[in-house]
Design a protein around this nucleic acid. Structure first.
Length: 464
DNA sequence: CTCCGAGTCAGG
DNA sequence: CCTGACTCGG
């Protein structure tokens, strides 16, 4: 009932039978001697209603073929958990504490006073009032001290550089070293909880602890992944989709140029730059690729010139020019983006390739901000949601094949476009091939899905 | 002591 | 665009 309720309205936040009965006007009817009989009647009634709704909205298969079988897979993943090297986490935590304390002292010296660096309020006062560093005003209660503001000041003001370093170290220490350590169970493993009815796009989320946001982008953060390990005699196999969301976009927009770009085998951002700037692939400069990459991301997110300009540090006007050129190159994407909003305004919802819905009441708001938000979501949700559907299908298929062919191998984690299996060492190559095959074949799109799989004794190594 | 919003930052 | 955790401060 909960999963059916989620599919009927993924924007809700309570799928209890009680709440569902209220939402869909289900009543038990008659008198009941005991509470449990009444609850059973309500549950039966609400299941009938939801089943009908799913049939009418074309989501019956999303429930029966994706979400219900997935729930078993997720339960098994939670139960299995991920083995960690707790000693390693602990000593890294101690090292981070020492280093952050050093930096904290240096910050106090430059500031000429001791204060709580972790308090944005106090930090803002020190930096932008006491030290008169130019501020890029913002926030309700004062100055913004966020990384994107401080980043532009770090080379001119040593204290800013130190604050950013301090923040990085304390983040790693508190959220990851301490946070993960407190989540290690008796068996030495971390058992996250997967929430299957939280994300409005159809993704799953991970909490207590969140294993879907373990650092990877910085070298400092990456080290953490060495402490996520396979048990003795076992290996980790890690497989991830390459550019799944852009491939989904190329396919559902049926954009001939973007499909050709993927089929060319050239790195997609380089290929995009080559198309947009009208130059050969080998003439693409790093800055051009970087711009093209930002636009590719921006398009997937449904963002406009304002956010894009802010992201890549150019004017709104210049950003608009990039977007215009991009949409001229990928005119199928342009057509798709218009159509999806038209459809959404007509029907009040958008759908993924597999029929999953998201309702968008924001589109009929009289508030421009709210409406624009609705339009960005309308552009993004089908893409993000289709990618989520695809990896869910892959997970169910991987789970079934492992269970029959490699019963000692276990799926242990999903991170939106990535799957991790812990398998006996001798099976690692076969399991990598299995992952690649099932992930690639999870959906038949107009662009082939590309998957890279690697193995290793720890997560960092298995990432390849 | 608990709760909550805001700010910040980790991932996709 | 989609999430979750930690910290501060009320």
């Amino acid at each position: 009932a909960k999963l059916a309720g989620y599919l009927c309205n993924p924007s809700s936040n309570d799928y209890s039978v009680e709440r569902l009965c209220a939402e869909y006007a289900v009543e038990a009817g008659g008198e009941f001697e005991e509470e449990i009989y009444k609850n059973t009647a309500l549950l039966t009634g609400v299941c009938d209603t939801l089943e009908n709704r799913l049939g009418e909205s074309g989501q019956a298969r999303v429930l029966t073929d994706i979400e219900l079988p997935l729930s078993t897979v997720l339960a098994d993943m939670e139960k299995t958990g991920f083995l960690v090297n707790a000693e390693g986490l602990k000593s890294l935590g101690e090292e981070l504490l020492e280093r952050s304390n050093e930096i904290k002292k240096e910050i106090y010296e430059i500031a000429g006073t001791e204060f709580n660096v972790n308090s944005p309020k106090q930090l803002g006062e020190i930096l932008f009032e006491k030290l008169n560093i130019p501020s890029g005003k913002k926030t309700k209660n004062g100055y913004s001290t966020s990384a994107d503001i401080l980043d532009g000041l770090r080379y001119d003001y040593p204290i800013v550089d130190k604050v950013l370093s301090y923040r990085q170290l304390t983040k790693l220490k508190s959220t990851y070293c301490d946070g993960l350590l407190s989540a290690v169970s008796e068996d030495g493993r971390i058992h996250t909880t997967f929430n299957q009815t939280e994300a409005r796009t159809g993704r799953i989320s991970s909490l207590e602890p969140n294993l879907q946001n373990i650092p990877v982008r910085t070298d400092e953060g990456k080290k953490l992944r060495e402490f996520f390990i396979a048990r003795d005699g076992y290996t980790l196999c890690d497989a991830d989709y390459s550019q799944i969301e852009l491939r989904v976009l190329a396919s559902i927009a049926d954009d001939k140029n973007m499909i050709a770009a993927f089929n060319s085998g050239v790195d997609i951002h380089t290929a995009t730059a080559s198309e947009v700037f009208g130059i050969p692939v080998d003439m693409v400069l790093p800055i051009m690729r970087s711009r093209a990459k930002a636009v590719n991301f921006g398009i997937v997110y449904g963002i406009g010139a304002f956010s894009l300009g802010k992201d890549i540090g150019v004017s709104r006007k210049e950003a608009q020019m990039y977007i215009d050129n991009y949409l001229k190159t990928y005119n199928g994407v342009a057509r798709y983006m218009d159509n999806v909003i038209m459809h959404a305004k007509e029907n009040g919802f958008v759908t993924t390739y597999f029929g999953r819905r998201r309702y968008l009441p924001e589109l009929s708001s009289s508030n421009h901000m709210v409406r624009s938000f609705g339009e960005r979501v309308a552009r993004n949700a089908p893409i993000q949601g289709t990618a989520a559907d695809i990896i869910k299908i892959a997970m169910v298929n991987v789970y079934n094949r492992l269970k029959s062919d490699y019963p000692d191998s276990k799926l242990i984690l999903q991170i939106h476009d990535e799957l991790i299996v812990e398998c006996p060492e001798k099976d690692k190559d076969a399991v990598c091939r299995l992952l690649e095959e099932e992930m690639q074949n999870a959906a038949d799109l107009k662009v082939t899905l590309s998957v890279d799989a690697h193995s290793g004794k720890n997560w960092l190594e298995a990432k390849g």
